[in-house]
Amino acid sequence: MLRLYGRVHHRDEPVEGAYVRLLGPSGEFTAELRTDETGKFLFYPVEGEWTLVGFAPGGGRTERRVRLAAGQSLDVDIEV
């Protein structure tokens, strides 16, 4: 099972209560998570092109595009 995980942070501090949205190749919604107290998130997607969108509490939106290859797990940091 592939894993796409990481941490949402603001100036190196983890952000709890941010939302991370996973979008598929054509921009369609696939899943969304709320970060825990360490700012972490974890998805189980299939291989392919994905976009992560981070939403910060109180406003702020950051996008990260990633490519997940077969058998790969990817660690992605999102600065909001």
Partner: peptide
């Protein structure tokens, strides 16, 4: 469901274990 689940690539949403 998501296109990945509909097509049969995934059995559950991508934030949940399969």
């Amino acid at each position: 469901r998501s296109p990945e689940e509909f097509s049969g690539k995934l059995a559950a949403p991508a934030h949940l274990p399969q």
